[in-house]
Design a protein around this nucleic acid. Sequence first.
DNA 1: ATTAGTGGTGTTTTT
DNA 2: CACCACTAAT
Length: 757
Amino acid sequence: MTSRLLENLNEQQHAAVTLPRESALILAGAGSGKTRVLTTRIAWLIETRQASPHGLLAVTFTNKAAREMLTRISAMLPINTRGMWVGTFHGLSNRLLRAHHREAGLPQTFQIMDTADQVALVKRLLKANGLDEEHFKPRDVAWYISAQKDAGLRPAAVEAWDEHTRQLVEIYRLYEAQCQREGVVDFGELLLRGHELLARNEALLEHYRARFGHILVDEFQDTNRLQFDWLRRLAGGGNAVFAVGDDDQSVYSFRGAEVANMRDFERAFNARTVIKLEQNYRSHGNILEAANALIRHNRDRLGKDLWTSEGAGEPILLYEAMSDSEEAAYVVDEARALRAAGVPLSEIALLYRSNAQSRVLEHALFSAGLPYRVYGGLRFFERQEIKHALAYLRLVANPEDDAALLRVINVPARGIGARTVEQLAETARVAGISLWQAACSRGPGRAGAAEGVRRGVEAFVQIVERLRSACDQATLPEMIEAVIEHSGLRTLYEAEREGADRLANLGELVNAAAQFAEDPMRLVELSPDAPADAPDPGGATEPDPVQAILVQFLAHASLEAGEHQSGEGDDALQLMTVHASKGLEFHSVFVTGLEEGLFPHENSLDDPGGVEEERRLMYVALTRARRRLHLTLAQGRMLHGQTRYNVASRFLRELPTALLRKVGGGWEDRQAVNRSAGTTYPRGAGAPAAAPALRVPRRRDDPGLPFRIGQSVRHARFGTGVIVDAEGRGEDARVQVNFGRDGLKWLALAYAKLEAA
DNA sequence: ATTAGTGGTGTTTTT
DNA sequence: CACCACTAAT
């Protein structure tokens, strides 16, 4: 039988897609059509009636990848993807736990903590138990607990040989007890609890095993021990696990991922088939050759070499700047040239090893008036005003949530300080009740309580109660509006100097909620409903629908900390960490900060395998590019508030020099390279019909500019300065101004309101 | 109880 | 530099 689905697949892809129902490992190199194979297999299984949409499970690592998969499936098949179990490990486990919360020992409205909440909780515990925060750093302790969970270990199972570890385990125990009291779970707990649920409940396990005859896993190289066990548990005897992965792109070992899972797969899942996808459809030859050469420096690979039928393409451009700002200026110039040559900005990625590096780049892009978008960094749902609003919502959903209460009991300030909170905590501890209950019982007439303090606590209790009743009949966006109004957050931020942005974000939160309430995909991601045919010994009670959507929204906020932000559709440069770029591709890629200590990162140098992981990360970075690849570094860079001088990254030495073209420091040289590198793109988005006209900015006086070099100008923030340079015209016109004490600044005339002084 | 101001300290990557 | 924890002033 031939299916349209199978058209245009190469031999290996075809073989993978049409494998019989048995476990198999697909070693898929970068750009080899991994996602295509995965989605086509799903579509093929459904089309040929080997599986129903209901009867397969697909796991990815990011929500983005899950959405992408669903979108592609609906494009291939006329089916409704709603209700299909496609999602992240965490998302699916969340779904499982909501459906069977009783057997899992969780309240129906359990909340999901993010890393910051986790650290805050640890800090509270350390304080409550009089432990030294110097010896036990909250961050490290939280890290330790997560690591144990990732390894599938409860406190009782951890082997502690020394005193320090014993104490850590004790904190872990306290931490668990506190989470249970509050009805909150962290990321690791989602997986661990889900796994235990299946392990302990034979009937439930059998049900899901019978249901999911096919289990498909994306990015298998990123699975940790617990996820591996989770899969093995669910797959049981006869089920087929179709795992797709690339050991060369394993870059999450810091979060527990074990490349060894790739090796162990065949044995653990009785897999007889391993298929390698080595033809790359993404990059030109030079880029691929460089990536191959780099990754060959790693030992212990499963072994695979990518090839392409495309030509060699352009050389890889290497630029060494004096400083980080010069590096940024280079990126700006080159990005402009690319845009002038017809490459959409959204097809250009600026990659860096660590988030902190984005600042300088952002600054340069902003000054140049180039639109850009930063992924990651401080995410939407992690901003303080958003977390405050969500904390109120969490209290509406579940007042026992101590973490939420602590976050906002004095926001806006209502006279409840550390002392009062301490007393509340003490009352709660002694009586074995939640902080909320303690606050409620702390009513009028309690001896010793200062009048003002009592009023404050009372006011807070009243606010939350008013909110609860306001939310009773409200839609989700209405609930959030109610929170913003009644909590006093609006008044607070209206009074604050920098509050305008925060208010805007809160407005954005209302929008996000409205969108979420409308979104049909919502049900796919986080449906709390048990499958109709699932055995449910506990007889789960239906949540009331108002609470249900609130709980779903809160879970959404934790699990998807703002992956889709506003301005998604705009044509803008894409800034992100190398980690965040995994799975994406761009016409042009800039890999910045290629210095020892930064990339490879200094913290990776001591631990065994650290450099190899950094090298894989570099491999990921290189293979994002389709046509043009820029590698940049700076001799000096501002870090920790002081300039550091680093030598070039060892990874640069590992690339064949024949593939590289050094670009001079001078601006004119760079333009020359731009031309020689060839800026015509026969196919692909937006190539101009005519020969690409490079924009050549003027460097000196230009009659089109309202200012001349040497002139004094005034700027709202920097004060008075002298124009020392100028370039561009029209909307792109920029001038460089020496502000003396504040130094030299490039300012875009379109943005900076300069006036003659 | 709250705020403003100071000084010390450290930092990868993320579901 | 930016985020804390801590201290002095209101």
